[in-house]
């Protein structure tokens, strides 16, 4: 960091930065170390608030507001919904690795990513930004919030309106997916999903788990008696997604 940048930073700025950076880091560490998922989510809120303060510090008021409204307000609340929905008291065993080799791989990737950041910072000349947009926002009356508001109603009017259509459709789609007509029973017969080698979880319903592995439909139900599905992998097997039920009828 060169000297003239440091000189431009006032004491208040430096102090704000230090405090909010501390909050951000403390929150981030809290997310990782807290044993309770609700606590982790609340720690995430703390981190996001700290980042919002950093945005204000950088004169990015709009981003700060969006950070609080969207991330801290909507997304973390969604996390909490999911946590509450799954059961607050459920403890995940952190020691078990869901994917083998995940942690060393994650470490390697983090090191690589960080190295990439450092290289990018050092070799900044290859990223040739055309003309800075920050200056445009700063020069206008009302700061970047007003500038963004103007852009939304002039240059980006049509994208803005189209976004509304996108949101409407997302709601309609969510309703279609969530609503199950009560008269439709679980499937009794299924032409198998040939060639799909991805393990699929058993549906858990008594009629929904029959699925033949040999790629040929029918058969088991042809004589009218429901064949007993033989489960490969016991139900208590904790592997996620690895539970496949196979019906043997020969």
């Amino acid at each position: 960091m060169s000297a003239h940048i440091l000189a431009a930073v006032s004491t208040v700025d430096a102090l704000t930065f230090a405090v909010s950076a501390l909050i951000v880091l403390a929150g981030a560490v809290g997310v990782v170390v807290s044993r309770h998922p609700v606590h982790a989510a609340l720690m995430l809120v703390m981190t996001l608030f700290g980042v919002a303060v950093l945005f204000v510090e950088q004169r990015a008021e709009f981003l700060a507001a969006v950070q609080v409204i969207v991330y801290a307000g909507a997304i973390v609340v969604l996390f909490l919904f999911v946590i509450m929905f799954l059961g607050v008291d459920r403890r995940e065993s952190v020691a078990a690795e869901p994917l083998r080799g995940q942690r060393p791989l994650a470490l390697v990737l983090v090191v690589l990513g960080f190295a990439g950041l450092v290289v990018l910072g050092a070799e900044a000349h290859w990223s040739v930004g055309a003309h800075s947009v920050a200056g445009v926002a700063r020069g206008q009356a009302g700061g970047n919030v007003a500038a963004l508001g103007r852009a939304v109603f002039t240059t980006y009017l049509f994208p803005f309106e189209v976004t509304a259509a996108l949101l409407v459709i997302a709601v309609v789609g969510a309703v279609v997916l969530a609503r199950r007509p009560p008269r439709i029973a679980p499937p009794t017969e299924e032409v198998p999903f040939e060639g799909a080698d991805v393990a699929r979880p058993a549906s858990g319903e008594p009629g929904g788990s029959e699925r033949r592995a040999d790629g040929e439909p029918g058969g088991g139900r042809a004589d009218g008696e429901p064949a007993e599905p033989v489960r490969v992998g016991s139900p208590s097997d904790p592997r996620p997604g690895g539970e496949t039920s196979v019906e043997v009828s020969r």
Binding site: G218, G219, R221
Partner: peptide, 15 residues
């Protein structure tokens, strides 16, 4: 292997 024969009619019939 199937006792009656796995015609397509059986599939759609039981579906």
């Amino acid at each position: 292997a199937s006792p009656v024969g796995t015609a397509a009619g059986q599939v759609s019939g039981s579906a």
